[in-house]
């Protein structure tokens, strides 16, 4: 069947297109000398080790992880009450808050970045390390907002009715029924916000670009002032983190459903 082969060729070509850049940077980080040659000349794991042993890169890594963890926590703390309120209450006006939560992600990122820059400069906090945490927290609200809203939508309201008939009040229901049901969606939302914050450049650059080096800022600076194989090894490490995190989300959750497919149980 030539049609089947055509389809396989098409899928393989796209798979190659998506993995080639990553393979090449994984390769150039193996060079023995400080060069970005491919195929690598000589073999050394030195550049992979440097991502953790070099003071500058390690500091950037720590900054990135701290910022992403705190920012994802802020995103979730804003998104969960919105999703819960819209699920629990009849309040059309509250949709405005929802739209505000989704807007930063729909608009070009440079808008949020420039807004953050104007805001922190006007309030006099420009350059403070914590400003990027808040700005990232706001920037990524949309991700947990989407996943948690989906989580609430999957709750069968009859279960809640049953709980109420048995005499449970709002607080008990929230703690024993609602929260356990939406918890996987909260965790996925946190994971999405975390990985995107790790990789975010423009908002971080416009808020703390000159005072705090995150990994994307450090890679960009290295691009301008001299390539090193370390930037390649760090990039490979970042790809792995993303794949592991999304792999875990898929392992413990229903990824196709999370991304909008109908749940059909086991398809194969």
């Amino acid at each position: 069947m030539s049609a089947v082969w055509l389809k396989r060729l098409f899928l393989s070509a796209l798979a190659a297109f998506m993995t080639l850049p990553i393979l090449v940077i994984a390769g150039v980080a193996l060079n023995e000398k400080k060069t970005l040659a491919f195929p690598p000349q000589g073999f050394s794991l030195e550049w992979y080790a440097q991502a953790f042993t070099d003071d500058g890169w390690r500091a950037a890594l720590v900054h990135s992880v701290l910022v992403a963890t705190a920012a994802a926590a802020i995103s979730v703390s804003i998104a969960v009450p919105i999703a819960w309120f819209l699920w629990r209450r009849v309040a059309p006006w509250a949709r405005i808050v929802e739209v505000l939560g989704l807007a930063p992600f729909i608009l070009p990122p440079v808008i949020t970045a420039l807004g953050a820059l104007s805001f922190w400069a006007t309030t006099g906090f420009y350059g403070q390390p914590w400003t990027v945490v808040i700005s990232h927290g706001i920037f990524f609200v949309s991700l947990p907002l989407v996943t948690v809203t989906l989580g609430f939508a999957t709750i069968d309201r009859e279960i809640i009715e049953a709980g109420m008939t048995m005499g449970a009040d709002d607080r008990t229901l929230l703690k024993t029924v609602v929260f356990p049901l939406v918890r996987p969606y909260i965790i996925s939302g946190f994971a999405f916000a975390f990985v995107l914050s790790l990789n975010e450049y423009i908002v971080a650059y416009m808020t703390v670009g000159f005072t705090l080096e995150t990994i994307p800022i450090k890679i960009f600076n290295a691009l301008r002032y001299g390539y090193t194989p370390t930037m390649a090894s760090v990039s490979v490490f970042f790809v792995l983190v993303a794949v592991v995190v999304f792999g875990l989300v898929a392992r413990f959750g229903d990824l196709p459903k999370l991304l909008g497919a109908w749940s059909e149980g086991d398809k194969g």
């Binding site: 970005l36 970042f238 999304f246």
Partner: peptide, 14 residues
């Protein structure tokens, strides 16, 4: 989720 910085760097190398 890859940073634009990383994508740019990877393709400029490739």
């Amino acid at each position: 989720s890859l940073s634009e910085v990383i994508i740019g760097f990877a393709w400029s190398t490739l």
